[in-house]
Design a protein around this nucleic acid. Structure first.
Lengths: 204, 204, 204, 204
DNA sequence: AATGAATGAGCTTTCATTCAT
DNA sequence: AATGAATGAAAGCTCATTCAT
């Protein structure tokens, strides 16, 4: 059995993805140079293009992985909640506290929405679609169980995603509110009211 | 007296701004080349840089102009509404129908949010701030007049902007719903419910 | 008889040449923009190109005029000197004190020597040729009158010009010596010795 | 063992520097385009900017290298001369014959003096400073050893540099004298006389 | 698997010059 | 005589991608 190396045990592919998170969070997609990612990950251009078809594809992989991790985390956290509405309400809180703790995740997933020439734009969207789907699923369940009145859950789930993104974005860009989680209660209440639920009825 | 010229009588500066709308809508900020803009506007690079300090500054001028036009339009449209809540509700409808009619305006103002290395990003934000301010103002008035309960109007106005942007964005990118204005009633209802108003009580 | 205008009575051509001195002194030939010159001279591009064929030709005119003025000044100053050697020695002093008083003249005439793509280079040279000719003429006369031994006066006149230029240049670029004229005595002595004259024998 | 390749075996960096000598000699700094250098060196812009930070920095490297080579050559050549004055006299001859043989070196080092907007100018000066220092050092030694009378060696070394530069410059620009080295004896004599030495006393 | 020198199309920006008014 | 908007070639530089080793 080989001894554990002193420093970086992960392979080049992982080191590149890790470095990409840093650089994307700090610079945004277009300004994130392959060279800088490669330097930070202590690999080489050749290695980069051995592991990834292109800068674009690499970002797709990264975003996919990050959003899947986030969705799984939320999934796990709300599994035990008694009702669909309890679950979405819980999901909001998990999402907010996760972004509050992992600023870089928020920066990569939310600050890099479109604005580029190629197809990359669309690669930052799946995360939003996935998250909207998660919400919609619970809202549909809530309708099916009679917890809320029938309504356009597709639209509502999108509105929720938009609301959440905007609040997090404001925090990222202006630092308001100081602690992102301070916004959670009011955010949660407004979202619940928007589907006709009295916030007071839902305990966290 | 000479007859009105068949083609474009406007000066180069205007033609450049018009062309920029087209190119920005189609390509986004980074991918919008100065060359393409001057080609489309039938001017020259020299002319571009005679009229604008830089590509960045030119986009600032354009976004400023577009967002001011939009805000003024909404302002005028809701002026005669009886209450603050009627006004915001009316504003939503004007905004949605304007974006529905002027797809390119939506594309430029909503698709080009951040993601660049320079300072441009910030130049797409004022529009959102301006719009959020408009909403917040009415919500504050509604609170002051006892139309709605006291609540975090700063947060709520941001949530509304996020909801609206997300719905329009989805339409731009996926074509859902077919007619953007089809989403207006449900959108309006959900937003009003989020501040504790019964949508049925507000006639448009 | 028309009243004297309050401000600038000179015509555009003169104003342009005056402005060019300022800009050339400050920026050098390549970095001196036509735009800056016309701005400073309160004229226009059109006016500039009405009066001058090109930027290059305009500089030729300017350099010609400046060097002629300088040569005439020296000519006048040394006219009454008793011998050729007294005249060159006197010329050195006039040249040095003129440059010391009119820094901009030195900057334009000495800092803009060659280094450009077109033919401009050559347009800064006539001044040097003219001045070298002046010196050579006197040295030839000194030889003819038996004041100095026969020697290569063409070469010597060039060497003198080079020495003078280098000393002035050093002053322009490094500020050494503090007062340019402080260098005159030693400069004069060395130059006189180089043609076999004892400096002590020549009174100024 | 592979045979020596017919064409250019040196690496890109060297090829670029070699090409730059040609282009700078022919065009001067401002007119020397990176594209032309790259074309002549059979590389690419990318390669150019991989090896050098900027055109300016590349020229600094080149000038530094050329002037160091020249100074070393002179240093080696005069090492064995018996006295300081013999050394400077010898240095003059080495300098003149080197420029006579390597016209391009003279062109790059002497024709590109100042005249630009940026900082490049200053990068052509160190060579002159270095050379002036070399001369001054020997003159100081000559004074210390009582070979010449005490005098302003700083000024004199500058004058010598100016004289030399002017003579070489005239040759470069007008072709006079036909063989540069033809000017050496008279040049040497005049310079020695300028410090109070009888040229006849110094054998080469 | 990994390297990094090399590529070249592309970028934004500058500027002497022209010309309709 | 004068104006200044317009021109367009050319500049220096960047960067995702390739490929011989």
């Amino acid at each position: 059995m080989r001894a554990t190396p002193a420093i970086d045990t992960s392979d080049a592919r992982e080191r590149i993805l890790d470095a990409a998170v840093e650089v994307l969070a700090q610079r945004g997609y277009s300004a994130a140079g392959v060279q800088e990612i490669v330097d930070l990950s202590c690999t080489s251009k050749g290695s980069f293009y051995f592991h990834f078809q292109s800068k674009e594809k690499m970002v797709m992989v990264l975003v996919d992985r990050m959003s899947e991790k986030l969705v799984n985390k939320i999934h796990d956290a709300i599994r035990r909640q008694p009702t669909p509405v309890h679950r979405v309400a819980g999901g909001i809180e998990v999402l907010m506290s996760t972004f509050a703790r992992q600023r870089k995740v928020a920066q990569v997933l939310l600050l890099n929405i479109m604005g580029h020439g190629k197809a990359v734009d669309k690669k930052f969207l799946p995360m939003r679609d996935r998250f909207a789907g998660l919400i919609q699923q619970e809202l549909d369940a809530a309708v099916a169980q009679g917890q809320i009145a029938p309504q356009d859950t597709v639209l509502l789930s999108r509105m929720w995603v938009g609301s959440l993104q905007e609040v997090v974005l404001r925090w990222l860009l202006t630092g308001q509110p100081n602690h992102l989680t301070d916004a959670t209660p009011a955010l949660r209440s407004a979202l619940l009211r928007s589907i006709g639920i009295d916030p007071a009825a839902i305990q966290t």
